[in-house]
Deep mutational scan, measured.
Amino acid sequence: CKPMSYEEKRQLSLDINKLPGEKLGRVVHIIQSREPSLKNSNPDEIEIDFETLKPSTLRELERYVTS
């Protein structure tokens, strides 16, 4: 899986911020299912740190927000 450039992460962040509330739950689910360290975090307060997410997680999020 190809790592994301800074610009791609920035765009992904903007795209996620534009999602309606009902789609954000899926974003949280994708992150929690792929990032063991965030599995028990509160979905309402999850802070997405794009620098610490795996490339595969970032690509999955990218696919979701652009679908």
Rank of each mutant, 00 (worst) to 15 (best):
V27R: 02
E8N: 06
E51N: 13
K9P: 00
L24H: 10
D15Y: 12
S67T: 13
V27T: 03
R59V: 04
V28Y: 14
Q11V: 01
D15A: 15
T52P: 02
Y6V: 08
D49T: 07
E8W: 00
R26Y: 10
G25H: 15
L14Y: 10
K54V: 01
N40G: 12
E60I: 02
I31K: 00
L12H: 02
L24I: 09
L53W: 00
R10Y: 05
M4A: 00
C1M: 05
G25C: 13
V27P: 00
E62P: 09
Y64W: 04
K2W: 07
P43C: 10
S37H: 14
E47K: 12
E35Y: 07
P55T: 12
Q32R: 12
E7G: 06
C1S: 14
L14N: 12
E51D: 14
H29P: 01
I31L: 10
E62L: 04
I46M: 12
H29G: 11
P43Y: 10
Q11T: 05
E8M: 03
R26T: 13
R34I: 03
R59E: 05
I31R: 02
S56R: 06
E47G: 08
L53C: 06
L24F: 12
L24M: 14
R59W: 12
Q32D: 05
K18G: 07
K9Y: 00
I30L: 11
L12E: 00
R63Q: 05
E35I: 06
N40R: 11
K39M: 10
S33Y: 10
V28L: 14
S41M: 15
P55F: 03
L19H: 03
I30W: 07
G25Q: 15
N42M: 10
Q11M: 04
P36S: 05
E45T: 10
I16A: 00
P55G: 08
K39P: 06
V27W: 01
M4Q: 04
I31H: 03
P36A: 09
L38V: 11
N42E: 13
E7V: 02
E8A: 04
K54W: 02
R26D: 15
V27G: 01
G21N: 12
R10P: 02
K23V: 13
P3Y: 00
P36V: 04
I46K: 11
N42F: 01
D15W: 11
K2S: 07
E60S: 08
K2F: 01
K23N: 13
S5G: 05
L38D: 04
N40I: 11
T66D: 11
E51M: 10
L53P: 03
Y6F: 13
L24A: 09
N40L: 13
P36K: 07
D44W: 04
V65P: 05
R63N: 11
L24S: 06
S13G: 09
T52W: 01
R59A: 02
S56A: 09
P43I: 08
S33C: 09
N42D: 10
I48L: 12
S67R: 10
G25E: 15
E45S: 10
V65Q: 01
R59G: 01
V28S: 13
G21K: 15
E51L: 02
D15K: 14
I16H: 03
D49G: 01
C1D: 15
G25I: 09
P3N: 05
T57F: 00
D44K: 12
I30V: 02
P36I: 04
D15V: 11
N42T: 07
L61W: 05
S5K: 04
S56G: 11
H29T: 08
D49W: 00
S67N: 11
S33I: 01
E60H: 07
E45M: 06
N40C: 10
H29C: 00
D44I: 08
Y64V: 09
V27A: 08
G21L: 11
I46D: 11
E45C: 06
L38P: 02
P3D: 09
D49A: 04
K23M: 14
E47S: 11
I16G: 00
T66V: 10
L38Y: 14
T57K: 00
I48V: 11
S56F: 03
R59F: 03
K2M: 03
Q32L: 07
D49Q: 02
D44H: 10
T66S: 14
Q11S: 02
T66I: 07
R26K: 13
E51A: 07
N42C: 10
I31Q: 00
P20Q: 14
L58S: 06
S41D: 13
T57S: 02
K23R: 10
S13L: 04
T66F: 07
V65A: 08
S5W: 00
P3F: 02
K54P: 04
R63P: 01
N40W: 13
E51R: 02
P20D: 14
R59I: 01
D15N: 15
D49R: 03
E8R: 04
V28N: 08
L61F: 03
K54Y: 01
N17T: 06
D15L: 15
C1L: 09
L12I: 05
L53N: 04
I16Y: 01
T66H: 15
Y6K: 15
D15I: 14
S37A: 13
Q32H: 03
S13F: 04
Q11I: 05
E47M: 12
P20N: 14
Q11C: 07
I16L: 09
I48E: 02
P43G: 10
I30C: 06
P20C: 13
G25F: 10
P20S: 15
S67L: 08
E62F: 01
Q32K: 14
I30D: 05
V65Y: 05
R34K: 11
G21V: 14
R34S: 10
F50L: 15
K2A: 04
N42K: 15
D44Y: 07
Y6W: 09
M4F: 03
Y6M: 11
F50N: 08
Y64H: 07
R26G: 10
N40T: 11
L19Q: 00
K9D: 00
K2G: 01
N17G: 08
E47N: 11
E60Y: 08
C1K: 12
E7K: 07
V28D: 03
S37L: 12
Q32M: 10
L24N: 03
E47V: 12
V65H: 05
Q11R: 11
E35P: 00
E7C: 04
E35V: 00
K54F: 00
Y6G: 11
L53G: 03
S33N: 09
D49Y: 00
M4V: 02
N40Y: 13
T57A: 01
E8V: 01
L38C: 05
P55S: 08
S5R: 03
L14Q: 12
I16D: 00
R26S: 08
Y6S: 14
R59Y: 07
D15Q: 14
E45N: 10
K18R: 12
T66W: 10
K23D: 15
Q11D: 04
I48Q: 06
L19P: 01
R10E: 05
G25K: 15
S13Y: 05
I46G: 08
N17K: 15
E45K: 09
L14P: 00
E62H: 11
S41H: 13
S13R: 15
L12T: 04
E51S: 07
P43N: 12
N17S: 10
I31E: 04
V27K: 02
I46H: 09
E8K: 02
S33A: 10
V65G: 06
L14G: 04
K9N: 03
E62T: 05
L19W: 00
R34P: 00
K9V: 10
I48K: 09
K9E: 11
I16S: 01
S33H: 04
S67V: 04
R26F: 05
S67A: 14
E8P: 00
V27I: 12
R26Q: 12
L14D: 13
R10V: 09
E47C: 10
Q32V: 03
R63K: 14
E60G: 07
G21R: 15
P43Q: 12
Y6P: 15
K23Y: 15
H29E: 15
E7S: 08
I30R: 02
S56T: 11
R10S: 01
Q32W: 02
Q32G: 04
S56C: 07
I16F: 02
P20A: 09
S13T: 09
V27Q: 00
Q32F: 03
L12S: 01
S41K: 14
E60P: 03
S13I: 09
D15R: 13
Y64R: 02
M4T: 01
P43V: 15
Y64Q: 03
E7P: 04
N17I: 02
L19K: 03
C1Y: 15
P55W: 01
R10H: 08
K54L: 11
P36F: 01
L19F: 01
S41L: 15
I30A: 14
G25L: 13
E62N: 08
K2L: 03
E8F: 04
E62D: 07
I30P: 09
N40K: 11
L38W: 14
I48N: 07
V27M: 08
D44E: 14
E45A: 09
E62M: 02
G25D: 12
E51Q: 07
E60L: 05
K9W: 05
E22C: 11
Y64E: 09
L53M: 13
H29V: 02
V28Q: 15
N42I: 13
L53S: 04
T66P: 07
L24W: 14
Q32S: 05
C1N: 10
Q11W: 00
F50V: 15
I16R: 01
R63M: 10
K18S: 10
C1I: 05
E22T: 06
R63Y: 07
S56M: 05
K39I: 09
Y64L: 05
D49I: 01
P36L: 05
D44V: 06
P43M: 13
K39A: 15
M4K: 03
R34Q: 09
D44C: 06
